[in-house]
Design a protein around this nucleic acid. Structure first.
Lengths: 199, 199, 199, 199
DNA sequence: TTGTAAGCGAGACGGTACGTCCGGTCTTCCG
DNA sequence: CGGAAGACCGGACGTACCGTCTCGCTTACAA
């Protein structure tokens, strides 16, 4: 039987060193060349220590991503729905097209093989953002800006989907203009048809 | 200088054996456990022969995918735009959630790291299907079923994007009902607003 | 920079398993068919472990030879110089024409290409035996059995040389009679000329 | 059944190109790095052509050695036995310590594993020289310069042996002075003891 | 004089082993 | 007694040569 390590005894300095080493190696050589061995060496840490607290390098990178990410706290509500969506999408775009060699795409790639990692990714990174998203959309719906029957799950797929699509095919993330067009189209799909008769 | 091998001398039987072995191993153990070494052994082929004709296991899997895929020849045009989109999307969904352990997602994961593979993937698998797609949409546009200013690139992103989105996060491919809803929303975004009562 | 492994942490059981496997494979298939890969497999050891401690298969075989060899401790001194030389040469002959497929000739062949291995061979196997040899000859010289000006280096060449000569050309090691004649000739070359006045 | 190739149809230009390429590669990279593939490439020749006429790279090198070697025709007889032996030994020393990276030692090393090559080596390179050697010694014996019972086989071993001995252990070939001493010792072993005071 | 059968270049092929890299586990010893 | 250090087994990597095997093409002997 494998004894679970006692988190209370975990040495914080090692944890930080490992994440820092991961970040450095990742930005230096890319996620593809990232290695548990290299992380251990760079962090001055035993491989065992890494394996004790993380199941895979993807999990380490996910932790790194989590710490790095802007805390997506409250749903921004400037009153302008399109602008709010724009800013929320832009945060994700930032994670998927980082300065260079960021861990984001690597973690996604690994999650394709690794259901556990995929679950962690959903629970810890994606879910809170989705919640924020849905909250904002619902508020718009309540305000009559969206069709009352509009499917918010579909809205999510329509807005986030293109990012993954373009990521997977190396098509480049949408520039602001394109993103604007994207949002406009989606909003048109969700807008009550009667909105066209103003007077 | 690396000399390029002469394709004329390529032995077709080896090529087929390699693709067959790849298919078997992939469906048996999954793309993740796929190995050049195992392919060579199973195909009764020297590793060198694989490396001579493919740069990576992803490239082999891509070839396999390419051969396996239904030839997406002419744009289906039953007159019912939604139905046509539905059938085109279903083909892709089939490639991304195959019977079991199909190479599709694996190749996409690998393409995230490997720009060359991503390019091949785009050129050989994706492009022809996109062409078909766009052709069908344009015809609908010409027929006045879509808004004349509708951005067809956006339409592509909106329709394909959700598949990649759900794939990346292990959310499961859309079932037919959901897909129907998705298409309905997108079409609403593209439909001329005045289509109902112009005057 | 390659870090040198720490010998204190070396696992003795692996070392012994490797040497044992080498011996078995060598006697079974001959030094020529000996392979690092096969040694590792037979010893139940990772190839890395072999490469960590030995630079080449020749070095492994040399270690084996070293352990196997009779410890050539004190110079035998029965009073009969010819007999002592005979027994010392016989030990070497044993190493060069072992029961079957012994590593001796293989190591020598490899040493012809590999200066490092040749040095090890000289230092660890040959040197102590030469020392013993020279010691015995010097004692004979002191006792007036040899010419006081006799060159002991030449004596070494004359006595050992024929073994390598015959080994290189597959002429078979000298049988005892021939060896006897050889020694007699060499001793005649080293004997004081005045020994011919018996009365 | 493998049909023996017809030597009459052999293309001389290929044969020469192969030997030339072997010589160049050998002197450039050493016998150890010599490769059938490299020879074929450098000679502008198909590998098959090499395998058609030679069983191994050692055999090619042996041919090269044979062509290169000075024809050891008649036994030199200047009247001075020691000087004649000296010159004969010097020829061999030249083959074993060539300018640099000569094939000599490599062929000998390979012959240690390969009985066929060893036989060829003996028959074609060594035998004629031994014959010359023995002829010269016998003439000296007939002239009363050597003991009538002296064993000429032993003499051969004593004179050639040291060269192989020193070659095998990377001790460097004898310099002229040492060689002189060697010969003097051997001759002393072979000289009639009564040569000083016959009556 | 013209087949036609060999030698030939080119080089793809099935193999075997190489030496390296990294994943995960296990052991030793230090603080 | 937790953790650094790192040796260890396992297994895949991509490469280098081996010796065999078609391919077309010349080249010289025989019909």
């Amino acid at each position: 039987m494998s004894k679970a390590p006692n988190p209370a005894r975990r040495r914080e300095s090692s944890r930080r060193a490992i994440l820092a080493a991961t970040a450095e190696l990742c930005s230096q050589f890319g996620y593809g060349r990232l290695t548990i061995e290299a992380i251990a060496a760079r962090a001055g840490v035993s491989k065992k220590t890494i394996y004790r607290w993380w199941p895979s390098k993807g999990a380490v990178a996910l932790d790194l991503l989590d710490e790095t990410a802007t805390v997506a706290a409250a749903p921004p509500d400037t009153g302008d729905l399109a602008a709010d969506l724009h800013s929320m999408l832009t945060e994700i775009i930032g994670m998927l097209t980082p300065p260079h060699n960021a861990p984001g795409p690597g973690v996604i790639a690994e999650a394709l093989h690794d259901p556990d990692l995929a679950r962690e990714l959903r629970e810890r990174l994606v879910r809170p953002r989705i919640a924020t998203f849905r909250q904002r959309l619902r508020r718009a719906q309540d305000a009559g800006q969206l069709h009352p029957d509009a499917d918010l799950d579909v809205a999510l797929d329509l807005l986030y989907g293109p990012l993954y699509h373009r990521l997977a095919l190396h098509l480049g993330m949408p520039d602001p203009a394109y993103l604007h067009s994207l949002i406009a189209h989606v909003l048109r799909a969700l807008t009550p048809p009667t909105s066209s008769a103003p007077h």
